[in-house]
Nucleic acid binder design. Structure first.
Lengths: 262, 262
DNA sequence: TAGTGGTCTAGACCACCAG
DNA sequence: TGGTGGTCTAGACCACTAA
């Protein structure tokens, strides 16, 4: 690799391109170790700073990870299926634990979740969806779900404070029959829901809670549940690390009217 | 800001934290200009390299953009609604143009798309979903959709080559009545579909085609359409920049059986 | 303890474009 | 043409952990 000083793709991009090809072609298999920074300096005859710029690109593309002080490794991805529908109407067959715990157990892995309940003035995104008045309070049930001890996703459910204040929902433990059931018993049965999915880089707090590496975007799934009177009574915010999830919808025949598209 | 040389959060993180607060709090409004690198060096009494590390964090978080040679600016996000359902059963009322063009026009903006057709051996992700044999060919209709002249998303549709080889589908022009209709006429009506959504950082080719800035993740939406005989006859790969889309599902009452969560 | 990546400094030259 | 960010070098010290 030469250093054509001008009018060329920057050296660190060239180095990144070279390594990227090796990774995507499989020459560098998942979990394989990359050459050390020093070796790359020698190989490409550049300064360490330039090598680090190249590696920085690959880190931010989510292609490699740095395991200090061992070196850089090709990232391996395993995707767990996430079905937004399950967030709405789960646990038909096993009402003693929630959908997440059940489905993971079926795969023979150990799942756990930490639950925390608080009454707060929710962030704008939530307040808007719950149609709360200015300064209106909400009860939030915050959960971090983990598989085999590793944090997996964030699942925060918000309810208008006045609806659930003295109900079971404010109890920081798993609700066996489901929070929706409790809401229905309180006279606020949900009959409709919308899903919104945003894609962005995680916020620092999310990086911490989910132990995210660089180059890991998240999908944020908002589920808003409405009563027959079109009143929003629940908003669930799910934060799903991109390197650990596929979001899957199954479409029924009734939804499908053939008609178009490329 | 001091430089406690040891046992502390790195300086460039502290600088990034400081700036991040100003951005998320609104002190630095969207489109506002940040101080120049030189000014930040003075303010925090650090080397330019350190300032650039801090700005690099914010760039990769998608919070700011660099407009050379003017400076750094707080990023503004505008989300356009993307409904996966529309990719399956669109243009009911206006069969002369496809769903995308129609819905954008309704918002009073100008949409356009470039179509390109090719017969290829598809990448693994596509071949698997189409259940193609090793080396099996597919017809691909590639589109880059743009709004007001700016690229917006990538929409590539794949069909098994043997099904559509000499049909209208290989014609690189908009198919007014929709490719699904053509498929149905060929005896391959789709009655079922699955959606999968992945979240990841874009590949270099996607960065180019979509003119993505750093810190912009993408959602990749795979739609697989099946016939009554469970044969996959179409895979659509949509690449949606995270800074330009919200993915929305509306859920019907029939889909909603209250039951759980949170 | 040797070797890894993480952080930080100091200085240089460049391309670009608004003034 | 001056000032911006982009690239690259050279060198220093550090924390961490596997050997």
């Amino acid at each position: 690799m030469t250093h054509p000083r001008r009018s060329s793709r920057p050296i660190y991009h060239q180095i990144a391109d070279d390594l990227r090809v090796q990774i995507t072609s499989g020459d560098l298999a998942p979990d394989a170790q990359l050459p050390t920074e020093g070796e790359l300096c020698d190989r490409y005859v550049v300064n360490r700073g330039t090598v680090r710029q190249a590696l920085g690109l690959l880190l931010n593309e989510g292609l490699i990870v740095s395991v200090r002080p061992r070196g850089y490794f090709v990232r391996d991805r395993k995707h767990m299926t996430y079905r937004p529908q399950d967030e709405y109407c789960p646990r038909p067959e096993n009402p003693s634990a929630d959908q997440f715990l059940t489905s993971v157990a079926q795969e023979g892995r150990s799942a756990s979740q930490a639950i925390e309940v608080a009454i707060i003035i929710p962030p704008r995104e939530i307040a808007e969806r719950l149609q709360l008045p200015e300064g209106g309070r909400a009860v939030v049930r915050r959960r971090v779900r983990a598989i085999d001890g590793e944090p997996f996703n964030i699942n925060d459910s918000y309810f208008p404070s006045d609806l659930v204040e003295r109900s079971e929902i404010t109890n920081p433990a798993d609700i066996a029959r489901g929070a929706n059931k409790v809401l229905a018993e309180l006279g606020h049965e949900q009959i409709r829901a919308t899903d919104e999915i945003y894609v962005r880089m995680p916020r620092p707090i999310e990086v911490t809670r989910l132990q995210l590496g660089p180059g890991t975007p998240v999908a944020v799934h908002y589920l808003t549940g409405y009563t027959a009177q079109d009143r929003p009574v629940r908003v669930v915010e799910n934060v799903l690390p991109g390197d650990r999830h596929v979001i899957v919808y199954e479409r029924r025949k009734s939804d499908a009217q053939p008609g178009t598209e490329a």
